[in-house]
């Protein structure tokens, strides 16, 4: 049970990182990124390939994975930063599917649908599995803390104020002489960098990456986390991520308690309840569970 709880907390931390990444672009700059799973994949594959194939040390691999995700994010943002929110949703969702297709088909690079196994983990093998869980628990939540602090400073820096101004009214910001495109691209890329970091940590935790792991469902979970927590609020993003894991894991036990259903019906109920939770949260808690105090208008 301890190991299970520790593992779920690691997952919650990884989801929290992704939610913070999503929040940076969405909550601050109003740019939605439904291609989140794709950027997580870039970070995960980047670090996995560099450490496994080229023998890079793990910290360097993780940094490179983060950087790769940032570059991919900046590239996409340069193209699409001016699109309306709902158009951006369509493009980014498609982008993640393209990343998954490339990961599946460019076997020479990614080993295809076989995935990459045997990815090293910090102290893996040197300590017991449970101790390894705890090491990762520290590492992941340490990263969450770090990203949290950095984003908080960012949010209150002039950069953050410009981003919020952009989100509220782009024209006013532009009139104020701010290079709108550059700001939005930087916010988006910072967000994808954090997703890439989460992906890299995920790769070293599980020791394995494969295209199937980066399905759109992951993006739905993180959007759910951020919605539950409140767009624009970092504490909310972290709380939302924990809530998503509680929901995902809790439904296992709840759905199982309903008698007379076939297992496939339990499975359907579980996925349906995640969807329903998101719909209900969108409806009743549009500011999230912990709304950002400084905001006048709910995001997005």
């Amino acid at each position: 049970m301890d190991a299970y709880l520790a593992a779920m907390l690691v997952f919650a931390g990884l989801y929290a990182l992704m939610a913070l990444g999503l929040n940076l672009a969405w909550g601050l700059a109003g740019m939605v990124n439904l291609g989140l799973a794709g950027f997580v994949a870039v970070g995960a594959y980047g670090s996995a390939l560099l450490t496994v194939r080229l023998g890079w040390p793990m910290p360097l691999g993780i940094a490179a994975g983060t950087l790769l995700a940032a570059v991919a994010g900046a590239g996409l943002a340069l193209l699409v930063a001016r699109l309306r929110g709902d158009y951006l949703a369509i493009v980014t969702l498609g982008f993640a599917e393209v990343i998954r297709l490339i990961a599946s088909n460019e076997t020479w690079l990614t080993n295809g649908t076989d995935g990459i196994s045997g990815i090293p983990g910090p102290l893996r093998g040197a300590v017991t599995p449970q101790q390894f869980n705890l090491v990762l628990l520290g590492l992941v939540w340490g990263s969450v803390g770090l990203v949290f602090l950095l984003s908080a400073r960012l949010s209150h820096s002039p950069f953050g104020r410009v981003l919020r101004a952009l989100r509220e009214d782009e024209e006013v910001a532009a009139v104020a002489g701010k290079p709108v495109l550059a700001f939005r691209v930087r916010a988006f890329a910072l967000g994808t960098a954090i997703c890439g970091l989460a992906g890299a940590l995920y790769a070293h935790y599980n020791g394995y990456v494969a295209p199937d792991g980066f399905a759109p469902l992951l993006t739905i979970y993180i959007v759910l986390a951020l919605t539950a927590g409140g767009g624009g609020s970092m504490r909310g993003a972290v709380a939302g991520a924990v809530l998503v894991i509680v929901l995902l894991e809790g439904t296992r036990f709840l759905a199982g308690a309903i008698p007379g259903l076939a297992p496939v019906q339990h499975a359907a109920l579980r996925e349906a309840s995640v969807a329903l939770a998101l719909l209900l949260l969108l409806r009743w808690r549009q500011q999230g569970l912990i709304p950002e105090r400084t905001l006048t208008k709910a995001a997005p």
Partner: peptide, 22 residues
């Protein structure tokens, strides 16, 4: 709440409908 919120809601809705069918 705006078109983006409805769009995201519709992503959740489609997951819900798929599982009702399942």
């Amino acid at each position: 709440a705006g078109p983006l919120t409805v769009a995201i809601g519709s992503v959740a809705l489609t997951l819900l409908l798929e599982n009702i069918i399942r």
